[in-house]
């Protein structure tokens, strides 16, 4: 079990000593039951930190944002940032390190183990509560949550309200950390990895096409998925530029000749192109935090696209992202013992 008191003490200690400039963590939210990101720079505020199954966000995004902000500062504070990271989040940090987005010394990873549980899915939770509104969710034993509502306490089975990714999680314990809270549990007793994907894959080609066409038709191209993704940190998105990157090295020709791979209009063909290219660009990088799917206002199962490529990379190249920041990335690496026979 993770005791928040220990995390707070550690955060306080870091801030008091000044070894980090900020602790990225979670605090009680103001809108609903979910915790919200906290940016603690003052040791006195460390007591605001919380840790419970509503800490859903992947805070690695804010490491990326902070890096971007720093590049515009005249005299940036280069001390490391501490980040409270679940297993999945720590893998995101590892991928960012692999891609040299920042260096290992720039980040202090406070790992927290999800143990046998994980984080809740807000939609599943409200369904399970049948109209009642949760105000607090706490772990209860190894396989259920104790949910506080205005009407009193309810005990809910974890399997009913855990986020999809947590049900299939293979890294509930942070692989990379400077300090870690909580224990490692080998067998979590949930479905195997890629179970949900397997069900989708089992459908016929026509069924799958109809499934995705239906979803892509509804996409608004609000780009929430891209904005929340810690890996979507490119200064300009190749596939759909809403912000054009122009700097003193940009030539007039370049400005004049921007490539429009897809049209702006949010129609199925353009939307599917956007999602497919994004999925391909995340192959070997996506660590399945499923933030894209969580923030999607029209509930497109984006996670399944990324999951599919994660599975392909694992099956074809034995590659799993975010486990070793020293490895070359999937698309840039080549092995002599590659199973594909055309390479020799």
């Amino acid at each position: 079990m993770v005791d928040i008191v220990n995390i707070r003490a550690h955060a306080k200690d870091l801030l008091e000593k000044g070894t980090v400039k900020m602790v990225l963590g979670y605090q009680r939210g103001t809108a609903g039951v979910l915790a919200e990101p906290a940016f603690i720079t003052d040791a006195g505020q460390a007591d605001h930190l919380v840790w419970d199954p509503t800490c859903v966000q992947n805070l690695a995004l804010y490491l990326v944002n902070e890096k971007k902000a720093q590049s515009h500062q005249r005299d940036p504070d280069t001390r490391p940032i501490a980040i409270i990271a679940k297993g999945c989040d720590s893998r995101a940090v590892a991928v960012l390190l692999q891609e040299r987005h920042f260096e290992r010394k720039d980040v202090h990873v406070i790992g927290v183990s999800c143990g046998t549980l994980g984080v809740v899915d807000k939609n599943k939770l409200s369904k399970a509560l049948n109209g009642r509104v949760a105000t607090k969710v706490e772990p209860h034993g190894t396989d259920s949550f104790k949910v506080t509502t205005a009407e009193g306490f309810v005990d809910v089975a974890a399997a009913d309200v855990l986020a999809d990714r947590c049900l299939e999680c293979a890294c509930a314990y942070p692989a990379m950390h400077d300090v870690v809270f909580g224990e490692k549990h080998e067998d979590r007793g949930y479905p195997a990895r890629f179970t949900a994907l397997g069900q989708l894959e089992a459908k016929s080609e026509d069924e799958r096409w109809a499934y995705w066409e239906g979803h892509f038709n509804r996409c608004l191209r609000c780009y929430a998925c891209r904005s929340v993704c810690p890996m979507c940190y490119c200064p300009e998105c190749v596939v759909d530029s809403i912000e054009l990157m122009v700097d003193p090295t940009t030539s007039a020709d370049e400005k004049a000749n921007r490539i429009k791979w897809i049209e702006r209009s949010a129609v199925a063909s353009e939307n599917s192109m956007y999602h497919l290219v994004r999925a391909i660009h995340l192959a070997g990088r996506c660590i399945d935090c499923a933030e894209c799917e969580r923030v999607c206002p029209v509930d497109i199962p984006i996670r399944m696209l990324n999951n599919k490529l994660e599975k392909e990379a694992k099956d074809m190249f034995g590659y799993e992202p975010g486990l070793d920041p020293e490895l070359p990335s999937l698309v840039a690496s080549f092995r002599d013992d590659d199973p594909n026979s055309f390479i020799r």
């Binding site: 891609e99 040299r100 940190y233 490119c234 090295t249």
Partner: peptide
């Protein structure tokens, strides 16, 4: 290299078969 778009992720460095790219 389009410097404005390069993030220094080093993927090209790893991928180059001629070791022609560095950071």
């Amino acid at each position: 290299v389009r410097l404005s778009h390069c993030t220094g992720c080093e993927m090209c460095v790893d991928a180059c078969p001629y070791e022609a790219i560095s950071l």
